[in-house]
C-alpha cells in the first residue's frame, strides 16, 4: 500500500452562478415542457358531468407549456450571452472542438465511455471536450424546438416571437409537419436526459473529481500534478 502516494488536490471554481442557474432552470423547463408537451400530443380525456365552460384542464396544460417555453427561450439566450462574458469554462469556444489536442481528448473520452478503458491523457476541467461538443449540438436542438414551438404558437397568439418564428419556417411546411418534428424533438430530450445523467454519475465515479456536485456548488477538484505537465 505504501507504493501509492496520496495525491493532493486543488479546488477550482468552474461553474459560475449564472451557469449553474441556467443548468437548473433549463432542466426544470425541459421537464415541464416534456411532460406538458407529451400531454398535448396525447391528452387524457376528462370524465365529468360538468359543462365545458366550468373546466379548463387542457387549456392549463397548454398554458404551462407556453409559459415554460418562454422561460426556456429566455434562459437559453441568457446562457448564450454568458458564453461571451463568463469565465473561461463558460466561454462559447469551449463547445466547438477546433484544436487537434481537443480531438485527441474526444477520442480518449469515447474510449473511456464506450470501451471503459482508463483515462490516457488529461480530461479538461470544464466540460470534457466530447461533452462540450454534444452540448453545442444540443443547443441547435434547443433552437429548433424553440423555433418550431413558437411557429406553432403563432396561430394562437399575436405575440411577435411567434410571428417571427413562423416567418423563418419555410412557407411550404404546413403546421402538421412542424408539429410532427416538434413532437419528435421531445424524444431527443428523453434520450439526452437518460444518457447525460448517467454519464455524469459515471464520470464522477471513475474520475473522482466531484463532477456531480460541481453543478450545485460550482467547484471541481483536480490533482496537483495536473497543473504541472
Amino acid at each position: 500500500m505504501d507504493a501509492i502516494k496520496a495525491p493532493s488536490y486543488r479546488r477550482i471554481y468552474v461553474w459560475e452562478l449564472p451557469v449553474r442557474a441556467f443548468h437548473w432552470i433549463n432542466g426544470i423547463c425541459i421537464l415541464l415542457l416534456g411532460v406538458t408537451g407529451y400531454l398535448i400530443g396525447r391528452p387524457f380525456a376528462v370524465i365529468s358531468e360538468q359543462e365545458a365552460s366550468f373546466q379548463y384542464w387542457f387549456g392549463t396544460v397548454r398554458f404551462l407549456h407556453f409559459a415554460a417555453g418562454y422561460l426556456f427561450l429566455i434562459n437559453m439566450l441568457a446562457r448564450i450571452y454568458w458564453g461571451f462574458v463568463g469565465n473561461r469554462y463558460a466561454n462559447w469556444k469551449q463547445f466547438i472542438p477546433t484544436r487537434r489536442k481537443w480531438f485527441t481528448e474526444v477520442a480518449d473520452v469515447l474510449r473511456v465511455d464506450v470501451l471503459q478503458t482508463r483515462v490516457q491523457g488529461k480530461i479538461h476541467i470544464g466540460h470534457n471536450r466530447l461533452a462540450g461538443f454534444i452540448y453545442f449540438l444540443s443547443f441547435w436542438v434547443y433552437g429548433f424546438q424553440a423555433l418550431t414551438g413558437f411557429a406553432l404558437y403563432a396561430a394562437m397568439s399575436p405575440s411577435w416571437i411567434g410571428r417571427a418564428a413562423a416567418a423563418v419556417i419555410p412557407g411550404t411546411w404546413n403546421d402538421m409537419g412542424v408539429r410532427q418534428w416538434h413532437h419528435a424533438g421531445l424524444w431527443f430530450f428523453v434520450l439526452f436526459t437518460i444518457i447525460h445523467v448517467y454519464l455524469v454519475f459515471y464520470h464522477d465515479y471513475v474520475e473522482g473529481r466531484g463532477t456531480t456536485s460541481s453543478m450545485v456548488g460550482g467547484w471541481k477538484f483536480e490533482r496537483e500534478d495536473y497543473f504541472k505537465s
Binding site: 391528452p43 380525456a45 376528462v46 365529468s48 365545458a52 365552460s53 366550468f54 379548463y56 387542457f58
Partner: peptide, 11 residues
Amino acid sequence: RPTYDAGMFVE
C-alpha cells in the same frame, strides 16, 4: 372548441 380547452375528448 370549449370542450377542447376543457379536455373533454372523444376517445
